[in-house]
Amino acid sequence: MNRIKKLFAEKKDILSIYYTAGFPSLDDTLTIAEELERCGADLLEIGFPYSDPVADGPVIQESSKRALDNGMDLKTLFTQLKELRNRVNIPVLLMGYVNPVLQFGVENFCRACAEAGVDGCIVPDLPMVEYETLYQPVFEQNGLTNIFLVTPQTSEERIRKIDGLTSGFVYLLSSSATTGKNLQVSESTEAYFSRIADMKLDNPTMIGFGINSKETFEKACAYANGAIIGSAFVKSLDAADIKGSVQRFMRQFREL
C-alpha cells in the first residue's frame, strides 16, 4: 500500500502542512519537513515557487518571491530531495504551477519525483482534460497521484470525474478564494461540505484554504478526513529559529 493510502486507512483528522521550498532560506526545505514530521504533521505539501502564482494570496506570493530570490528552482529542489527519504517518512506532495513543470519536462519531472520518493502532485493550473490526455500515463508510470481541487461551484459531474482520476484525495476548497483567507463556516459552506460527504466519493477528502487555527482545523475535520494549512504556517516561520517556530506552530494542533 502506498504512503498516502496507508495514511488515510490508518488515521483520521489528518493534518497536512504546505510550505514553500527555499523559504525562508534556500536550504531550509528538509529541515522544515523533518521538524514538521517530528511535531506530528501527517502529510506534507512542498511548494515549488513560481513568479506568477495567481491562486495565491499575499503570504505565499511573498514566500514564492523570496524563494526565487534565494535561487530556488526545480533542479535545486530535486537535489535537496535526494535526502528526503533518509529523513522523512510521511507522504509528500509537490505543489506548484504548470509552467516550471513544462520547462523541466513532464517526464523528467515525474521521474525526479519518483526517484526522490515523492508521492504525488498538486498543479492547480493544469486542466483536467490536459492531465487526462497527456499527463496521466506518465504520472502513473512513476507511481504519482495527482490531486485536484474542488470549489463550492464545482458541479457534481465534475467532482465524480475528479474522483475517478485521482488515487490520493480530493482537495476541497473551503470557498472560491485565493490562499490565506480566514475560513468562515456559514450555512452555505456547511451545506457544501455535507453535499460532498453525501456523495460518498471513492477517495478521502481534505479541506484547505482558510485553515489557520485549531478552531478552523477542527471545524474542517468534522466534514472531511483532515485539513490543509498553508499561509498561516508559512507566515509563522522564523528564519532565525526554524525548528522553534515549527514547534510553536504545531503545538496548537498536536501535543508535543
Partner: peptide
C-alpha cells in the same frame, strides 16, 4: 510555455519563471 491561462510563447527563465 503557459502564462495567464493559455499555452503560448513567453519570455521566461530556464526554470519557467516569467
Amino acid at each position: 510555455g503557459v502564462l495567464h491561462g493559455s499555452r503560448s510563447i513567453l519570455m521566461q527563465t530556464h526554470d519557467g519563471q516569467v
